Simulated scan of single mutants.
Amino acid sequence: MITVSHNLSQFIAQLKRQARQEQFAVALALTRTAQAVRDETPAYLDRVLDRPTPFSKRGIFVQRATAQKLEAVVGFKDAQAAYLELQEEGGTRRPKRRSIVLPARIKLNQYGNIPRAELRRLYDRAKNDKRATPALKKRLGISSKVDLFVGDPGEGLPPGIYKRLPDALVPLVVFHEGPVRYRPRMGWRRWTLRLAGDRIAGEWLKARAQAQATAR
């Protein structure tokens, strides 16, 4: 008589341990790849956008993969995605209220924007028919020796904040009442897929070695 015996329960337990190790390694590789995208996105935004703000560059989040859910997610938080989506996909931005504020002849900050607080001060002084204060003049690059006007000047000029000259109105800030159209220019999703494709294999090998080294 020929017989074969084997401890199947031990063999099955070993297979289960290996399966858990593989799942751990895949989840770790996915998470590290998503983290690499997050960490390299600020430098990418510097390359493709004009002076992105620190607020934009720190708005990336990562959801870690787990052994139960082998999926890692990287993306922009809601506040940043609300305006960066137009840079990524293009489209039309419509005023939330009456108009969209667009700079005309005014000094912008280092990120190419009008500081909201300064715009509010400028608007308030123009509304009260006052001149710009010396401090406001220095920050926004306008003369404190001219009167300010806010509203609709007529004669084909858009509503906005203007400085009064003896024979003309010079726009400082224009209130654009129609939609503003954007073309796609960020390319972040395409760049992310390419970076993830370059990183995932290496991260998988490192994660697998780590899983085997810590296996029980």
Rank of each mutant, 00 (worst) to 15 (best):
103 P>L: 04
62 V>R: 03
2 I>E: 10
202 G>K: 06
61 F>Y: 14
203 E>W: 02
3 T>V: 07
215 A>K: 00
134 P>C: 05
27 A>R: 02
74 V>R: 01
92 T>S: 14
66 T>F: 13
150 V>Q: 00
126 A>L: 01
108 L>V: 03
191 W>C: 00
211 A>R: 00
182 Y>E: 07
186 M>T: 07
175 F>M: 07
16 K>F: 11
40 E>L: 12
84 L>T: 04
171 P>L: 08
86 L>D: 00
56 S>V: 11
18 Q>K: 12
66 T>A: 06
12 I>N: 07
137 K>P: 11
53 T>Y: 06
134 P>S: 11
130 K>S: 05
23 Q>L: 10
11 F>Q: 14
186 M>R: 02
184 P>L: 03
176 H>P: 12
163 K>D: 14
188 W>F: 02
50 D>C: 06
197 G>H: 05
192 T>D: 03
128 N>Y: 08
118 E>I: 02
114 I>A: 05
104 A>T: 02
210 Q>T: 05
70 L>V: 05
172 L>R: 03
111 Y>V: 01
71 E>F: 09
70 L>P: 03
124 D>A: 15
164 R>A: 11
100 I>H: 08
168 A>M: 05
155 E>L: 14
34 A>W: 04
38 R>N: 06
179 P>S: 14
40 E>M: 12
140 L>K: 01
165 L>I: 06
119 L>N: 05
53 T>N: 05
12 I>C: 06
135 A>T: 14
140 L>W: 02
84 L>E: 04
2 I>A: 12
105 R>A: 10
35 Q>W: 13
142 I>D: 00
202 G>H: 07
44 Y>W: 04
190 R>H: 12
155 E>T: 15
184 P>K: 08
15 L>G: 15
204 W>V: 08
105 R>F: 15
105 R>V: 12
126 A>D: 00
91 G>W: 00
44 Y>H: 06
